[in-house]
Amino acid sequence: MRVAAVCGAAVVAVVGGVAPVTGAVEGRGRGPEAELTYHGSAAMSGGRVHVRFTPHHHGPGGVPDSTAAATVRLRWSEPLADRQELPQGCARAGERVVWCRVGALDAGGVGESLGLRVRLRGAPSEVLLEFDTVWSGGG
């Protein structure tokens, strides 16, 4: 799991206890025969967060094109506004959680870029965003 702190228009990603990297969002998830990472960016302004990321599959097995196979879970430290307009393939899964379908990925492959904008309840000055992969077994 990777965590990104979003403050104003700046983003900081913490990579497993390593020094923060400015301007990127990274996440990682491991399944039985697949290892996914997410690379992208996030920007926040006036209680709205725009997130864009691309899944990368490091193998060894493939990821099938199934909504249950691999899903990226995005969790915010602040509650989301009640109404959200999410892109196709993404769904709200609680007060602070959105899930997005990853789609099929061959070993060593790069998936389609995903972009979403969410509204936070109120207008907090910062928010933590966590990325992780949920596998069909509930991982």
Rank of each mutant, 00 (worst) to 15 (best):
R83Y: 12
G108K: 01
V25D: 01
P64M: 02
V14N: 14
V110Q: 12
A24P: 02
V21Q: 09
P60M: 01
G94S: 08
F53S: 06
A91G: 07
S77I: 06
R83P: 03
V49C: 03
T67S: 14
M44G: 15
V97F: 08
V49R: 08
C100T: 10
G47P: 00
E78H: 13
V14W: 15
R73W: 07
G108F: 02
V12H: 11
G31E: 09
G23Q: 00
G17Y: 08
G59K: 02
A69F: 07
A13Y: 02
P55S: 06
Q88D: 13
G61Q: 10
T54G: 04
R101V: 12
A93N: 08
W76Y: 13
E95M: 08
G16V: 06
R48Q: 13
S45W: 09
T37S: 14
G59V: 04
A93T: 06
D106N: 09
Q88K: 10
E78K: 12
R52F: 02
E26M: 15
S45M: 05
A91D: 08
A19W: 03
A10N: 11
V25S: 08
P20S: 06
P55Q: 06
H58W: 14
H57W: 11
T54D: 03
D65V: 05
G89C: 09
V18N: 11
G27E: 04
G111E: 07
R28A: 11
L36G: 00
G29H: 01
A19T: 08
P79A: 08
A9H: 10
E33S: 10
A19C: 07
G46D: 10
P20L: 01
R30N: 07
E35F: 13
V21A: 14
S66N: 13
G8K: 10
A43M: 12
Y38N: 04
G46M: 00
R96F: 00
R75P: 01
A70S: 13
W99M: 05
L80I: 11
P20I: 01
A43S: 15
G59D: 05
G16Q: 11
V11I: 13
G40T: 06
G23C: 01
V18Y: 11
A81H: 05
E26T: 10
L80S: 09
V49N: 07
T54F: 03
P32M: 10
S45K: 11
Q84R: 05
E35C: 14
L80H: 06
R30W: 05
